[in-house]
Amino acid sequence: MTLMRVRDLEVRIGGRTISSVPSLDLGPGECVAIVGESGSGKTTALLATLGLVEGARVSGAVTVCDTDVLTAGPRRLRAIRGARIALVMQSPQAALNPAMRLGTLMRRALARHGVKGPAAKARAADAVAAVLLDEGVLRRYPHQVSGGQAQRFAIALAIALGAEVVVADEPTSALDVTVQAEVVAVLRRLREERGLAVLIVSHDLALVSSIADRVIVMKDGRVVESGPAAAIFAAPADPYTRELVAAVPELPPPYDPASPPASPPASPPASPSASPPASPPRTGGAP
């Protein structure tokens, strides 16, 4: 079963291709990541899967849960958005109505999809627990929760409405590292336990490698490389992918008491420039 299927997607504005994805398949419990830097067309591709690209020529085929997104009417699109496929954005707090408690927000969203009363309550409780949030969070207003909590609530909302696919646009880049780890852990758990499919867009390769099964690398609107995440990160074939992988800053390995390194860990490095070997010399040319 395939929840999302993209073939020969091409988004053009004024004759210029701003994003093209030849092929993308997403099944239950899978995670595909689109990786690229700003201007690579990755976010446009993601919006196209939701039928949210306007003012541009979109060609190809995008099928989400047996609905052809590109040809479906607005009513049909609204029916699948939320109920089958949900969007999680970079800053969820901006997307939550500040005048509504999170519980109210969730109740209204459920009511719109025909879930009311005790059933709605049970769904909300289940969804909130699924993202490791305390039920108390439902009594708070958006400004009273942290960025990580708001992001997990956005995911909970998707779960409560029964979404099978979550589409996430840089879901963690506005978050601190520890919070980022929480969100990633929640997404992984939901994939394993509920078969949630995740399409994630990010420029953070390290993050992507820790969550995605397959990776699509984009540059200037085109896919330069795609394949299983492990293979791509182990042996990037395209020069651009290699550059991306090399640019990921590396931490020194953790000290293992069982096999201490040659130099005593207590001594500081001789000079800061003798730091990680991970970064090959680069020219200082303007990016």
Partner: peptide
């Protein structure tokens, strides 16, 4: 430091988190 995602290493959710 445990929360920093690393290529090829599945991110462990740190105990402190």
């Amino acid at each position: 430091r445990d929360a920093v995602p690393r290529i090829g290493v599945p991110t462990a959710v740190p105990a402190a988190v």
